[in-house]
Design a protein around this nucleic acid. Sequence first.
DNA 1: CGTCTGACGCACG
DNA 2: GCGTGCGCCAGAC
Length: 137
Amino acid sequence: MTTITPAEALSFMKQTKNNQAASNAHEDRFFSLVYELVRLIPYGRVSSYGAIAAAIGSPGAARMVGWALNHCSLESETVPAHRVVNRNGVLSGKHSFKEENTMQQLLESEGIIIKDDKVVDFKRLFWDPLIELSDFG
DNA sequence: CGTCTGACGCACG
DNA sequence: GCGTGCGCCAGAC
């Protein structure tokens, strides 16, 4: 696995933006970028599919982010996929984890309160790559 | 091929 | 604030 710094992530993001024409390369990077970016979500914080998609230069590809995380759940050991929820803070991906309540337990173990499959105080805990990483640009 | 189905998100009423 | 409809793109069939 490759652990990257926020600054490197920003660099990736910009590269992706410029490479939108090269669909193959872009497609290859899409998965990697999703994983790299998700790894950057701090402990005890959460982000959304749409935010991740937008951050890697593919706004509107939120479904692809979810698809990438699900289809390649092999990386679940190294990618904190449980920290990615939908735009409402709902744990829409909980069914793809090992147990029905695995995702919730992982989040709760980080101090995040979950009620009715929804992150309590989601607004405050939300981590937007485009905003949080801009400090390093 | 056409169609349906998603770990989604936005516009609209 | 909530339900509905639609756009989105990739895969399954």
